[in-house]
Design a protein around this nucleic acid. Structure first.
Lengths: 224, 224
DNA sequence: GGCTCATGTGGACGCTGTCAACATTTAGCC
DNA sequence: GGCTAAATGTTGACAGCGTCCACATGAGCC
């Protein structure tokens, strides 16, 4: 290091990426300004353009980190239940239901903890192709995690295969909508306790929507 | 009109508002540039500042119109079923379930038809206070419409009062999340038919989540 | 007719992203 | 070790943005 303190920076690319993440965390997606990053890192404006094609390239890098953070939050939740279940095992159905809830809760965890990164992520999220997810992303795909949880619910017999159709979109929509409404929508400013209660209610509703009823076969009566 | 073709515009405020709406429709929230509006209307930059305190004030006006559009889309849906039911009446439960679905579908209708306005609306949406909604907004509040539909479901005996708790947030989250994912999220670019199918599945899931089961009393086993 | 106030204009400042030209430092090669 | 080429950082410029200020113009009122 210290090889020529000025001029050649050495780790400019990483430094810029770090600064970009910090800027977005502090001031949201619009807080990412190339010139400002250069200023923070102590380098001239335009230096960034030796490492990133344009602002969008910087956004992509931040989005990648945000995606990793989102995945981390979800996996942390899953790992926690896994650890808890090691002590006293529960029946597979309960376990599968629980895991789906935790996936959703982890998603919201991240959104609330890192609103800036979360918002940026969904202005730069890759389009999800018809079925083949999780192919490119090194870090894993939340959508894939969700699908696995749902498949599990089918496997243990809790979720009717007919109801399974489209359930991934329903679950994602519900949890994502909840996150968005709480982060940048009309539900922002909700007290933490109220938010938690509302989230638990939402997860219970989803659980109820997917659960097989003792009463009758798969109902899917959509309209008249 | 034509009173002094140049200089005094006469309807500058309305003209700017109209141009702002058009700009957002065409290029999204970021497409709203004060200077650009002035140019479009044929007036000098800065003229807008005689009628709007700042850019945000212009955003608020567009948000108001967007809200009206959203409400319109929902009410149009409701009016349509109302008309259809005039010919052959259905039982109250079916009717109430149908109305909830239409509310959600109208919401998505607007989001898909006017992505720019929809996106802007939810960066400037008023915070929803604990319970007393629909007080200020002249045009009505989507949240209130949703709550009425849910109360109706309780009244006709389809929705258990216990499950009713938090249902407004669950429904709003699900539909809003679906809209967001389709408008600016990873589900953008979904074919119209696929989107419609996914939406119907989502509405069916919600209907299933809220519906009373013949099997047992209100289950709300959330965890543990 | 003259005064006042609302409304529109022109110029400026600082911010942004991006391009082009220039400087310097590092690395490769003899 | 020294020369050259590529990588990296700097400076300057341009256009666009929001916003403030001073000024010009027009409309309405007395």
């Amino acid at each position: 290091m210290t090889a020529s303190a000025r001029y050649h920076h050495g780790h400019l690319r990483e430094a810029l990426a770090d600064a970009a993440v910090e800027a977005v965390r502090e001031h949201g997606p619009d807080g990412l300004a190339v010139r400002d990053l250069a200023r923070r890192v102590g380098v001239s404006h335009n230096a960034a353009y030796r490492h990133f094609a344009d602002r969008d390239a910087l956004v992509d890098v931040v989005a990648e980190r945000a995606m990793a953070g989102l995945m981390g939050a979800m996996e942390r939740r899953l790992a926690a239940v896994e650890a808890a279940e090691a002590d006293d095992p529960v029946d597979p159905v309960h376990r599968a239901r629980r895991r789906l809830s935790e996936v959703g809760a982890g998603y919201v965890d991240f959104a609330v903890a890192e609103p800036g990164l979360f918002r940026l992520l969904f202005t730069a999220y890759p389009e999800v192709p018809d079925k083949d997810l999780g192919k490119g992303t090194e870090v894993g795909d939340p959508f894939t995690v969700l699908n696995l949880a749902l498949d599990d619910l089918v496997a243990v017999g809790y979720l009717d295969p007919v109801v399974r159709e489209g359930a991934e979109i329903t679950c994602w929509s519900a949890v994502h909508g909840f996150a968005v409404l709480n982060v940048e929508g009309p539900l922002r400013g909700l007290a933490a306790a109220d938010r938690e209660a509302a989230l638990q209610a939402l997860l219970a509703h989803i659980d109820g929507a997917l659960g097989t009823r003792p009463g009758g076969g798969p109902r899917r009566g959509r309209r008249g």
